[in-house]
Design a binder for these strands. Structure first.
Lengths: 335, 335
DNA sequence: CTGTTAGCGCTTTCAC
DNA sequence: GTGAAAGCGCTAACAG
């Protein structure tokens, strides 16, 4: 591995001082003869010189890099968010460092610290909530944006959706469509506000509709937990018109097939609905009724807030709620 | 924004020299009294000190960061690859910087250069092929891994799958299953070896089966191009048993619905198959026959090669082919 | 066991 | 127009 040319090498080869080269690099051509400029340009091209961003960052105290921590880069929410976030930042000249917390609070903490050590200029994360104190401190030093799990922290920004309202809305519509029993499938919601809110929304709807809530907790990757939930759905569907409503797209993906295999006619005997709009929502037949989360908008908003702040603009800390929309489709007999 | 404590601050507050603090930071406790150690630990905790990775990297000429450039982070291939890659690197203590080229060669070049400027220690990318000369040079200075589009460059690694063989295999099976006409839908393959290979595989199969190839080129995002292709499929299907075979999952996703809307019975009158295994492959009815690309294995392999190289191990440049497998399912009447 | 010091590659006064 | 030199925060000889 040959070592890379430095500004020194360029200066030497061009017969000028590093100062002049530095000026050239930063586009301050006014203070430089046409001649030197061309000379430097030539040398740079010849040596394939690339300025060392580390040295520059060390001096300037700026890395032009921001960090993002998500639970799992392959989750649809994360994919959509990261992409929009990345595009926005990229357009503003920032680099993106990404990492996965796997939902583990300790790991999340380590990742944040190592991002800080790398002097990212801002952080966006889908936090577990366990590091909120630390994040609150951190938010005094750099822009911190909480995404999805929108905890309200001093000095930090939060971007989420109206989980409870949207969940209530879709659950209510299910009752309204004549499903007598709506079974709600969720992962353990402890400590995760999005899950709590969606559950609450469902419970709200049950209250208003004067129905008994049926909440089944499942664990993704644990078929037994799903079997139990499906058994419950089946039992209901044998007695009355039943709808299954899942707390997110991944849960539905994991049980969609067995759900259909129960044999109840969709949407008449059994309705299906989910929070999230999976990319396969209208490929299945009938297409899925779902809650569309504005994932891209969230990513863009996060990017906008961060770039604005890094540009030096004052942006008041706030909890931004980007509303979700209920999309009624054939899986619940309308749309 | 208060400015962060430096090693100097810690040294001063602990009443020792920066050297000692540096030693502490690097875990060389043997050369240090219990006392100093505790003192330093205390000061660090109190000041919330985090070493500056830039300064460290500048000195050590190591950033513990690697870069990845994909066409689009939301493409299933990229998602799967990035995730596996990220996990492998993360386990080895490396950070990941990601960027999207959007398939644009100029942008790709800029991204590579800016990664180089940031002194990433290695790069993995899904290249357009237009920067191969530059990449070949670069590969002399740092590990470069070409993913998906597996061009064979001197000193660089390439990881791909057996696109042609797998494509031939699935196309052949379609003929074998009794589909008289197999329509191949692809995006313009110019310069993109994966696409060329898959097309060649299809053509191979046609040759062997003594059938006339029917290749339709579509442009994602351009409904008109799809309408044309669908019309062709429809025309065939009215005459004989026809199968549609798409060059990747995104193409199929974009035409699956209208395809089904043609009304030909699947799989009897019309078979459906695709390269790639979309996550919805077995949610639709009948489940999809497809070619499963070992995306995760590719990501892991890329990560393994890079970590080995960065550990100083010699790894010969090579083109690694991780084989895909044909998965026969109901959409072609078997499985 | 601990400290002094010379850089790593770059930017930025301040001088000429 | 141009350059000398200090210093960003850290590591690693070398010296005690």
């Amino acid at each position: 591995m040959p070592k890379r040319a430095t500004i020194q090498d360029v200066a030497r080869a061009a017969g000028v001082s590093v100062t002049t080269v530095s000026r050239y690099l930063n586009g301050r051509y006014e203070s430089m003869s046409e001649n030197t400029r061309e000379k430097i340009a030539a040398v740079i091209a010849e040596l394939g010189y690339r300025p060392n961003a580390l040295a520059k960052g060390l001096k300037a105290q700026r890395t032009e890099t921001v960090g993002a921590i998500v639970v799992n880069m392959s989750y649809p929410f994360c994919v959509g968010f990261l992409r929009a976030f990345s595009r926005t930042l990229s357009a503003a000249g920032y680099h993106l460092m990404v990492a996965e917390s796997e939902g583990d609070a300790k790991r999340e903490r380590q990742l944040i610290e190592s991002f800080v050590a790398n002097r990212v200029e801002a952080i966006a994360l889908q936090t577990s909530g366990a590091n909120n104190d630390y994040l609150e401190d951190l938010a005094r030093e750099m822009p911190v944006v909480l995404v999805d799990r929108a905890f309200a922290l001093r000095n930090a920004y939060a971007i989420g959706t109206n989980n409870r309202d949207a969940s209530r809305e879709i659950a209510w519509q299910l009752f309204d469509l004549g499903y007598d029993c709506v079974v709600y499938l969720t992962e353990d919601e402890r400590g995760i506000p999005t899950r709590t809110d969606r559950l609450e929304g469902y419970l709200d709807a049950c209250r208003v509709a004067l129905r008994e809530p049926v909440v089944m907790r499942v664990r993704r990757g644990d078929p037994a937990s799903f079997r139990e939930a499906l058994a419950r759905v089946d039992a209901c569907a044998r007695k009355e018109r039943t709808a299954v409503y899942t707390a997110n797209g991944l849960v539905l993906m994991e049980c969609y097939r067995p759900l259909r295999a129960l044999g109840h006619k969709v949407p008449d005997a059994m309705g299906i609905a989910t929070f999230d709009q999976p990319d396969w929502a209208d490929l299945v037949d009938p297409p899925l009724t779902c809650v569309r989360q504005p994932v891209e908008e969230m990513g863009e908003a996060a990017g906008r807030i961060i770039t604005a702040r890094l540009r030096g603009e004052a942006v008041a800390a706030e909890v931004l709620v980007v509303p979700s929309t209920v999309v009624m489709r054939g899986s619940t007999g309308r749309g």
